[in-house]
Computed example of a mutant assay.
Amino acid sequence: MPYDSDSNIATADVLTLLLHNQHALGAAIEEVTKWLSENGVENVADSARVAMETLDTNAKAITDAIIRLRQF
């Protein structure tokens, strides 16, 4: 596949926006998790924590992809 700087920039820009959304969702889930824990719904809070871990893992992969795209 030929190198296309414009495509790499556009892809990195879109991934950056998705990463910002990922962080916003993580923050919202964290707030809900805190509320759940404080209100005795620990089993649901645990599930929310697992979701946050997934967001963190995927955010790392998205960040790595953005960096690779911006290096070209």
Rank of each mutant, 00 (worst) to 15 (best):
M1G: 15
E42H: 10
L18N: 05
Y3N: 13
A28G: 05
E42Y: 14
S47G: 12
G26C: 01
N39K: 05
A51K: 03
E42N: 11
D13Y: 01
I66S: 01
L55G: 04
Q22C: 09
E30Q: 13
D6H: 11
N43A: 15
D56F: 07
A48N: 08
Y3M: 09
V32T: 09
L19I: 00
S47N: 04
V50Y: 10
A65S: 15
T16S: 12
I67A: 12
M52K: 07
L19S: 05
M1E: 12
L17F: 13
E38D: 13
N58L: 06
L55W: 05
N8F: 08
L69S: 00
S47E: 11
I62P: 02
L25V: 13
M1Y: 13
H20G: 03
P2C: 01
E42F: 07
I29H: 02
R68E: 15
N8R: 10
Q71F: 08
D56A: 13
N43Q: 15
D6C: 02
D46V: 08
T54R: 10
D6W: 03
F72R: 08
T33H: 00
A28Q: 07
T11G: 01
E42G: 07
E30R: 09
M52N: 10
L25I: 09
Y3T: 15
L36T: 04
E31C: 04
I67R: 01
I66E: 02
M52R: 08
S7M: 12
T57K: 11
I67M: 02
M1V: 13
I67H: 08
A65E: 05
R49F: 06
D64W: 03
L19K: 04
D4L: 03
T16A: 05
F72Q: 14
W35H: 14
A48V: 11
T54Q: 11
S7G: 06
S37I: 05
D13Q: 10
F72L: 08
V41M: 13
T16Q: 09
I29G: 00
A12I: 01
D56N: 09
I67G: 01
T54V: 13
T16H: 01
S37K: 13
Q71M: 08
G40D: 12
E42T: 12
N43R: 14
E53Y: 08
A10N: 06
R70L: 05
T16I: 04
A27R: 06
D46W: 11
P2W: 06
E53C: 10
E30S: 14
N21S: 15
E31H: 12
L19F: 02
V32N: 02
L17M: 08
Q71H: 07
I67Q: 04
D4Y: 03
T63F: 03
T11L: 11
D64A: 14
V50D: 08
E42C: 04
H20L: 14
G40M: 02
G40A: 06
M1W: 09
T54M: 09
E53R: 12
F72D: 13
